[in-house]
């Protein structure tokens, strides 16, 4: 059952088309991320859902109600902004109570709801503080409580973590996701950070140039990117030029037999891609010669920079205390499985 439906959305600013025929049905309780570089139209889509922008054409429907022409204050949507959008002149409790106050909720009920929300975000004792007395992470949690206090039908998150320190960003991710699950609230999350999108979402929409390039679960988007943009934008990728000869591919002269799932091109040159973690040292189903050019120690992961067939590629392997990395300049073999190859169209 589709709860929030965005259909045939178009938005132009002057001659600039920033959103092109955007369609997205979202289930009740689903957490969907719009992922893309800045200027890809993801924020515009969110602002149209919120009602801050009106679309050039297309519609937004929530729970069967067409809200396209509705003003933001009539939509009953919750929203968390990028940074410091708390009202600085109100205390934490007054901020959380704001939406209830303007809706005319009785005082006792409002107070109970505020207390409930502050408990939900784990800041039950900070109701009397002013925003400037809170850390960035605390401020964003209060912003979340403020958005949720009015029991909105849909929650919109506009890059809520990008202004925070790396550590708080990671811990707040899981916290937001937990609260979202607990309340079962339909959520649209806008971000340019693929790690955030992949780790938090039920589904990810990868956007570029105003269109949705791919819609799928984090697993699908990461492992089976359908376009070159998705493949390169999400995660690190090694690109190889390959030649198709009708039965299979040749990479640097080495024949590769493709499984049926990967559609072989009809001949000529094409690009194939491999994630760093799909490569391993030593021979495999397909084996290529390589030289070690650099070693980056990332803690649990060891990233090797190898030259393979003239191209610099990255190879990730788990760090093991008993297996020191190969010396620089050494000739090694790298192997991979043909199943992991991604053939890029366009």
């Amino acid at each position: 059952m589709t709860f929030l439906s965005i259909s045939h959305l178009e938005k132009s600013f002057g001659a600039n088309r920033v959103v092109k025929d955007f369609n997205l049905p979202i289930e009740k309780g689903e957490f969907v991320s719009l992922l893309g570089p800045s200027g890809c139209g993801k924020t515009t889509v969110l602002r149209i859902v919120a009602g801050f922008e009106s679309p050039s054409s297309g519609s937004v429907t929530i729970d069967g109600q067409d809200v396209t022409g509705l003003r933001p204050n009539d939509r009953n949507i919750g929203m968390v902004f990028q940074a410091y959008a708390l009202f600085p002149n109100l205390t934490v409790a007054q901020n959380v109570a704001f939406g209830l106050k303007v809706k005319g909720v009785a005082k006792a009920e409002a107070e109970a709801r505020v207390a409930e929300m502050l408990r939900l975000i784990g800041l039950p004792d900070l109701g009397g503080r002013y925003p400037y007395q809170l850390s960035g992470g605390q401020q964003q949690r209060v912003a979340l409580a403020r958005a949720l206090a009015v029991r909105p039908r849909v929650l919109l998150l506009d890059e809520p973590l990008s202004a925070l320190d790396a550590k708080i960003r990671v811990s707040l991710r899981s916290e937001i996701r937990e609260i979202q699950r607990e309340l079962g609230i339909t959520t649209v999350f806008v971000t340019h950070d693929q790690e955030e999108a992949l780790s938090m979402s039920d589904r990810v929409v990868v956007m570029n140039g105003g269109i949705a390039e791919q819609v799928g679960t984090p697993f699908e988007v990461y492992n089976r990117p359908t376009t070159r943009f998705v493949a390169t934008f999400v995660g690190t990728l090694n690109l190889f030029e390959a030649e198709a000869d009708g039965q299979g591919l040749r990479i640097a002269g080495v024949p590769v037999r493709l499984p049926e799932a990967v559609e072989a091109a009809r001949g000529g040159r094409l690009s194939v891609a491999l994630r760093p973690e799909s490569l391993h040292l030593g021979g495999g189903e397909v084996t290529l010669p390589a030289t070690v050019e650099a070693v980056e120690f990332l803690g649990s992961i060891l990233r090797l920079r190898l030259r393979v067939a003239g191209v610099l590629v990255a190879l990730d392997t788990f760090n093991r205390a008993d297996a020191p990395p190969p010396a620089l300049g050494r000739a090694v073999e790298v192997g991979f499985s043909a199943r992991d190859l991604v053939v890029l169209n366009g």
Partner: peptide, 22 residues
């Protein structure tokens, strides 16, 4: 900040309410 006005609106406030309270 533009976000203050937008936050107020999306929480259900009218323009005059935003001006008076924020």
């Amino acid at each position: 900040k533009r976000e203050w006005k937008e936050a107020a609106l999306i929480l259900g406030a009218t323009g005059p309410q935003y001006w008076r309270m924020i």
